[in-house]
Computed example of a mutant assay.
Amino acid sequence: MIRRILAPSLALLLGATLVACGDDPEGDSSSNTSGSGLADLSIEGEVGSNPEVTWDGELQADDVEVEVVTEGDGEEVEAGDSVLSHVWIGNGVTQQMAFSTYDAQTPQLFTVDEEMLSELFIQGLEGQTIGSRVAVAASAETAFGPAGNSQLGIGNKDTVVAVIDLLEQVPDGPEGAEQQAPTWAPSLVGDEEAPTGLDFSGTPKPDGELKSAYLIEGEGDAVEKGQTIVVDYLGQVYGGKKPFDESFSAQPTSFQIGVGAVVKGWDQTLVGAPVGSRVIMAIPPELGYGKQGNEGAGIKGTDTLYFVVDVLAAN
């Protein structure tokens, strides 16, 4: 609900949820000839920069192949961890790039969960260390299911190559010094680590101004315009009995900040916030969903939005 612009989810393109879904892509490009594996693929460039991939003919991989191109010195990624990563996807048969997050500098959030990611990406993340560049190859069926992935131009008999840069491990919650809540702010309901709602008892009526304050002031670097940030959040209209949206009960979310990808109140508040912070904000309608509101979320054009946001990472 926080997003003003809804883009296709990378998880939907790359995750396990597409397994066995959809029709076989037309024009299957596989020739079913024998080819090389990762050992014959050249991958150059520094972690965080667009990989330079040189193909030595058609690449085939029946089983999942994993090669650590550059080994980082950060923490080892375990099952259940969330990692901010760049990813490059190539078709081993056509020897063409199918997808990349590098050019737009929009790293994506991956949670190491077999219900969310296919085996290709699980093996590229789990057991690897932060700061690493890892190459993984597998059949299209292993990566995406029997239909391949028509959205990426990968046929059901093709081979998939992924280059994954593990940039940053996302902590479970905010990290910093607790601050006194302002008098205009509602109190949090539920677990302090994962609030379930906002209590507006005694909270003054909104005055039409954008307000924000730190409940926890993080000790990390200040968020910069254009960065991809990872957050947990909860949103509730003033006087509302329950949230209209939240991520604390599920998984964190990621998006670019300061570029119009989310409501204006978020862009104006979170740019400059130290990573590790928990921010509470009151957003007037013109900096939220405007006069039209958001009918699907039960938000009227006159509603002031209150959010609590944990800024977990930025890259």
Rank of each mutant, 00 (worst) to 15 (best):
I2D: 07
A11T: 12
L13T: 04
L14M: 13
G15K: 02
A16E: 13
C21N: 11
C21V: 15
G22C: 03
D23R: 09
D28H: 02
S30L: 00
S30I: 01
N32M: 11
N32H: 13
T33G: 10
S34G: 13
G35P: 10
S42Q: 09
E44S: 15
V47W: 06
S49R: 12
S49T: 15
P51W: 03
T54M: 08
L59R: 09
Q60V: 15
D62F: 14
V66H: 01
V68L: 07
V69T: 02
T70S: 09
G72Q: 06
G72P: 07
G72S: 09
E75R: 07
E76M: 09
E76F: 01
E78T: 02
D81E: 08
V83H: 02
H86D: 10
G92S: 02
Q95S: 05
Q95F: 06
Q96W: 00
A98W: 00
Q105I: 08
T111A: 13
V112W: 07
E115G: 14
L117P: 07
L120G: 01
L120N: 03
F121K: 08
I122D: 01
L125A: 06
T129L: 10
S132K: 00
R133G: 06
A135R: 04
A138H: 03
A143P: 00
F144E: 06
F144M: 00
Q151A: 12
Q151K: 12
Q151I: 02
G153Q: 00
Q169F: 05
P171Y: 06
E175G: 08
G176E: 11
G176M: 11
E178F: 06
G190P: 03
D191S: 13
E192Y: 05
E192P: 14
E193S: 14
T196A: 13
S201T: 15
G202T: 07
P204D: 12
A213H: 11
Y214P: 03
I216Q: 05
E217K: 15
G218L: 11
D221M: 14
G226D: 11
Q227T: 05
V231G: 00
Y233K: 09
P243S: 06
E246S: 14
E246K: 10
S249T: 13
S249Y: 02
S254W: 04
Q256S: 15
Q268M: 11
Q268N: 11
T269N: 03
P274D: 06
V279G: 01
I283Y: 03
I283C: 02
P284R: 04
P285V: 14
P285H: 06
Y289A: 01
G290L: 04
K291G: 05
Q292E: 09
G298F: 06
I299V: 14
G301E: 02
D303N: 09
D303I: 12
L305S: 07
Y306G: 01
Y306A: 05
V309I: 12
V311M: 11
V311A: 12
N315T: 10
